[in-house]
């Protein structure tokens, strides 16, 4: 049995339920005979990957669904061995070069040149080129991106590259100028609800629209998240009533609690307690920037408008400190203390 997310993943452009204009454009592009390099960007869970596969299917037909995963070893100039997982079909390859960290350039150079220099041998293939999908392109180093520049032009006959990333800010301009930029916006709450409702009908689950809307709202535009939450709820509770609580991840609850306790008591004892929770969160691999961001938005729910503006300024400042500094816990705590201070001085004034 597979997850609902995978079961109901659309496999062709016609099945996509939202962004119809975009699907239409992708379809024309796929059939036009001159398929460009592409850069798909948008928030996570918006359906970038799904769309990429739909386009591939449109381009090559069924063949792209037969995927094998193999591990390839690359050797750096200093004889270090790197292993990268590559998912491939006869028409395409998929890599996440950022997996190998600093050595992403090697993977890009070796792999892409390998593929680029061989032509498609299958005469029945619909297209003369192969497609390379590069995941998390925004995590690619500058070197790796620079390495792609000329390759993309030189071997344009044999390969097309599809980048998949969250933000375009970290993609260098020369790459952006070589690609067709495709923005995949997050689905609206109605669109997510629509998808959930569809799944519920297909699975013959009785669930009220209210709950679905709440799930969609809580997922903040992340459809994958919404479907996963939906599935969790079905698993946990046999009967979902109108008032059923929509579960949120543990760590979010913890951060919510931190926010509440900051607002309730501003004391050094409390800071010590919060520190423990922070450590716990970090130990569970929640990245510090995410903690800071979630905490900030959690705080917004409980404080007065005037302080919100100041908290935003502080959050932005400590976000920067987090990235450039060494030890994250210091900056997280500094942020907490600053916020406590803001609350205290605001209370004194009024």
């Amino acid at each position: 049995m597979c997850l609902l997310v995978d079961k109901y993943r659309p496999t062709s452009l016609d099945q996509l339920t939202y962004h119809h204009d975009l699907s239409h454009l992708l379809k024309i592009t796929a059939h036009s005979g001159s398929f460009p390099h592409m850069l798909m960007y948008g928030p996570s869970g918006a359906g970038k990957k799904t769309r990429i596969f739909c386009v591939l299917k449109e381009l090559f037909g069924e063949g792209v669904e037969k995927i094998k995963i193999d591990q390839r070893t690359f050797v750096t100039s200093s004889n270090r061995k790197l292993d990268a997982n590559i998912a491939s079909s006869i028409y395409h390859l998929e890599v996440t070069p950022s997996d190998v960290g600093n050595y992403d350039r090697i993977v890009i150079q070796e792999l892409i040149k390998d593929v680029a220099q061989t032509q498609q041998v299958d005469l029945n293939a619909k297209q003369r080129f192969k497609v390379i999908i590069i995941n998390e392109a925004d995590a690619l180093g500058r070197d790796a991106q620079a390495a792609l520049r000329r390759t993309m032009e030189k071997y344009a006959k044999n390969i097309r590259i599809i980048f998949c990333c969250n933000v375009t800010s970290r993609i260098i301009a020369p790459i952006r100028s070589r690609c067709l930029l495709v923005r995949v916006a997050a689905p609206t709450i109605e669109e997510s609800t629509q998808v959930l409702r569809q799944i519920a009908t297909n699975e013959k689950i009785k669930i009220s629209d209210d709950v679905l809307i709440r799930i969609a709202g809580k997922s903040e535009g992340n459809l994958r998240n919404a479907i996963l939450t939906f599935e969790t709820m079905i698993m946990q509770q046999a009967n979902i009533s109108k008032t059923s609580e929509v579960p949120s991840p543990d760590w979010k609850d913890h951060i919510e609690n931190i926010a509440k306790s900051i607002i309730k008591t501003q004391s050094s004892a409390n800071i010590m307690e919060i520190r423990l929770v922070f450590y716990e969160l970090i130990n569970h691999c929640i990245p510090a920037p995410i903690i800071l961001k979630t905490l900030t938005f959690a705080l917004f729910k409980h404080v007065h408008d005037d302080i919100k503006m100041q908290i935003t300024a502080q959050a932005s400042f400590y976000d920067h400190r987090l990235r450039t500094g060494q030890k994250v816990i210091i900056h997280l705590e500094a942020f907490v203390i600053k916020v406590m201070h803001l609350i205290l001085s605001n209370n004194q004034k009024s």
């Binding site: 928030p43 918006a46 933000v167 375009t168 800010s169 923005r183 916006a185 903040e220």
Partner: peptide, 9 residues
């Protein structure tokens, strides 16, 4: 941000 625009732009 839900619309997916980039901040630098």
């Amino acid at each position: 941000f839900l619309s997916g625009y980039s901040a630098v732009q």
